[in-house]
Design a protein around this nucleic acid. Structure first.
Lengths: 345, 345
DNA sequence: CTGTTAGCGCCTTCAT
DNA sequence: ATGAAGGCGCTAACAG
């Protein structure tokens, strides 16, 4: 962790150098930089030229130290490789960039310990705000940060009962509709593949699933609720198990695309035909689902918009005089009906 | 862009507070924090306790201003949503995190202007180094940064002729092998779908393609080299065009997964059968390719390793006394043979 | 081993 | 409109 300074810093050019080159004082240079006060057109010109001449670039560390504002936002995700989170990251990045903020990226891999380390690091870096998808154990860590006045907004998941803004989708309702759609298409023995993680996302999707079933008067054997971790191999394992039941399900509702990909592989390996032997709807759409034979019905989430909106909320709250009260934004997820849930004939 | 300070900062606790609580001086606190010098066990204890008691968290801005070291790395990508880049991002993030560095994420969307803005922002933030996938126009912008002593490493693409480290795959050879494989499986009229962007990646893939063809004594009509942008709709358009030729190709080599996804859709819409009517190999593998019917042969890139290695190179060079000379790392991409390139019969 | 001193680069009163 | 002075929080000599 130790490191020596190399000769790198000889080239450090500061507002002093600019001032000297422009024949004025550092304060004046600072004023044209921030635009905070009036300076005569002549001086301003001189300064601007001097900046070019000496190749000056501002040092945001120094500025931040002085102003207590860093114009950077933390972004804590569980898996940047998932299409959902990478789209959200892009949305947040684009919005932040446009408003002059930078994004510090953290990937927790769903590890509470990593989540804690990320939060601490972000605090030490003095980020102005944090966008994050909480994983288990977030609540207790968060307290101290809220007291420190850090602005937060949660995405995808929610830690309930905390006065924090959030941007999520209508997990319950969208799941309800997806399952309702399966039922309407004649499927009766529907199993759910979901995560054992206690995050709101999966809980609510399970909730919508159950609601649709009970509303239709359909039974739900305990064995039809299959829980695992979130990798695609877990999806494989879960689906494999479900398909091995003597009375196996005739349809699957899967609460994440990763699990879904694994489940599809299991179906294939079991030599079962998607749609004819087993219907399937997956929560969270990925481009590949449209390409498959048969194509896969999925619930599309506005991931990019979620990320964008989260950044927007944070920046607004940062830049307003009175920090606005926490807001809960719920964006609609959309059922994209393809072939895997619609039997022929 | 203007913003008032809120009442947030009342809670700022510094090493002074710690010092007071521990009955010692700020320097001693600093010493236990950095471990730079010996302090008596008693004092150290007192300081450690005081830190807990007053809820102190270090301010890395201030430290960085003093030490000229920020322990943060810039990461400039063209599209975080692409599986390749998001895997690379994760690799870089994991390595950086492990070594105590943070990652500042920038997404250029392949825009030279955005690339420039990102670079400037990163410089202003005083990052210790930058990992980046250059897009067109990178060369000229880079110069000034190299002089400023910023450490760089390129991934995926290369700006040639600059003394910068890079981590790439063996684009030429892997492409050669992929096309050779198509030829060995009886395909003869092979077209390539690639990008019009002049980045080394696509150029080299085209190079390997041509090499395999000429070595086999196969002709390459100009119309069989199709170039577009990089979206999947471009892939669709290009493939659609190729398939409409009176003497259409019997196989496609596609130089990116995005283009490939579009091409597959075009094949499907044209009611052609992958493999039997038209063979296909795609450079850059994504999980979905394994799931399709028939499954898609692809060139798998070690994206995570590329990101990891890039971070490692930068950190090593940062932490070594003598900055080591730039190194060019070439990781092997692997041809994953599935069904789309292997005719039955 | 420990406290004091002097900045890192910048912004911001305060005088002028 | 402009310059001088002080300090953001921290570390690194320098003394003792």
């Amino acid at each position: 962790m130790k490191r020596k300074r190399t000769s790198k810093r000889k080239t450090t050019v500061t507002i002093h150098d600019v001032a000297r080159a422009a024949g004025t004082s550092p304060s004046t240079v600072s004023r044209v930089l921030t635009g905070s006060a009036n300076v005569s057109a002549a001086k301003r010109e001189a300064v601007l030229e001097a900046i070019q001449a000496v190749g000056y670039a501002p040092n945001l560390l120094a500025r931040g130290l002085k102003t207590q504002l860093t114009y950077s936002l933390g972004l804590i995700l569980n898996d940047i490789q998932s299409p959902f989170f990478s789209a959200a990251a892009k949305g947040a990045q684009d919005c932040a960039m446009q408003r002059g903020y930078a994004i510090l990226l953290c990937d927790t891999g769903e590890e509470p310990a990593a989540q804690k380390r990320c939060l601490e690091m972000l605090r030490a870096k003095q980020v102005d705000g944090v966008i994050f998808a909480p994983t288990t154990g977030a609540a207790m860590i968060l307290d101290s940060f809220l007291q420190a006045g850090t602005h937060f907004v949660q995405i995808d998941r929610q830690v309930e009962g905390l006065p924090i803004s959030s941007v999520v989708v209508n997990d319950d309702q969208a799941s309800y509709e997806a399952v309702h759609h399966l039922i309407a298409n004649g499927y009766r023995r529907i199993a759910i593949l979901t995560s054992e993680l206690s995050v709101t996302t999966h809980d609510r999707r399970l909730g919508g699933f159950k609601r649709a079933l009970s509303e239709a008067g359909l039974a739900l054997p305990d064995s039809f609720v299959l829980r695992g971790r979130t990798s695609s191999s877990d999806g494989y394992r879960l689906a494999h198990k479900a398909l091995s039941y003597s009375r196996r399900p005739d349809a699957l509702f899967v609460t994440s695309s990763r699990l879904g990909v694994g489940a599809l592989r299991a179906i294939r390996d079991a030599r079962l035909r998607v749609r004819d032997d087993i219907g399937i709807v997956i929560f969270d759409d990925i481009p590949a689902f449209a390409l498959m034979h048969p194509s896969i019905t999925a619930v599309r989430q506005p991931a990019y918009e979620i990320g964008w909106k989260a950044a927007e909320i944070i920046i607004e709250s940062l830049e307003s005089e009175e920090p606005p009260p926490p807001q809960q934004v719920v964006l609609p997820a959309e059922l994209v009906i393809r072939e895997s849930s619609v039997p022929r004939r």
